[in-house]
Computed example of a mutant assay.
Amino acid sequence: MTANPAIDFETIFRYAPVGMCISVDRVIQSSNDTLEDMFGYARGELAGKSFQVLYPTMDEFLRTGDRIVPIMNAKGRYSDERIMRRANGELFWCHVSGRALDPRQPLGAGVWTFEDVSEKRPVSKELTPREREIAAFIVEGKTSKIIAKETGLSPRTVEMHRAKLMRKFSASTSSELVHKLMGA
């Protein structure tokens, strides 16, 4: 009978097929090769950097942080799809999931995964930061009323952004807009 080899968690982390990082207060402490490659950074270059460098704008970074806290407090984890920014400025859709190590500190120490979903969902139109945020909620199937509540906007303002998105994507129905946002 052969003994099981020792599990080398550092190797598992480094070579995992999804981007992974450990963060404290939204600052990357350590990231794996896949995350660095996905975002276009050299080995070890993300260590010590704020997650802000991965967002298209500072405003999107701040709004996402505000949105994460109540969900992490309620569920202990967070997951969404959003548009992120590579080191070269290219925007792409990314599935992000995270979990706090201490549920009482949702943005404290945590483990986060990132998956590039741009092949399934290319960023095909020039969108404003707010339109990117609204688009992410629309793709999740959320109504204007729910989007308004989660973003602090009025339902009427959300409807205005939805209408702009429909014009930009030449969509005549909400389901057609979702298909176009998803690159279908």
Rank of each mutant, 00 (worst) to 15 (best):
K120D: 12
R77A: 10
R162C: 08
M160D: 13
K49S: 14
C94M: 14
L153I: 06
A148V: 05
D80P: 00
K125P: 04
K168L: 15
I146L: 13
S144M: 05
F92D: 02
E133N: 05
E81I: 00
L127Q: 07
M84Q: 11
R86Y: 00
I134Q: 00
L127W: 04
S118F: 03
F39C: 07
I134Y: 00
E150A: 14
L54E: 01
R63Y: 09
S144L: 05
M72H: 03
Y41I: 02
I146A: 13
V158S: 03
L62W: 09
V53N: 06
A74V: 03
G152A: 08
R104C: 01
N88H: 05
E140T: 01
F61K: 10
Y55A: 12
V158C: 02
D80Q: 13
L153D: 11
E81M: 09
G48A: 14
V139Y: 06
F39I: 04
I68S: 01
E90I: 02
K125I: 04
A47I: 08
P155Q: 06
A109D: 13
A87F: 09
A163R: 15
T157Q: 10
G44A: 10
F137P: 00
G44N: 12
M166F: 07
I138G: 04
R43A: 15
A100T: 01
I71R: 15
R156L: 08
P122C: 05
S79P: 00
T128H: 02
R99D: 03
K164S: 13
M72E: 08
K125S: 08
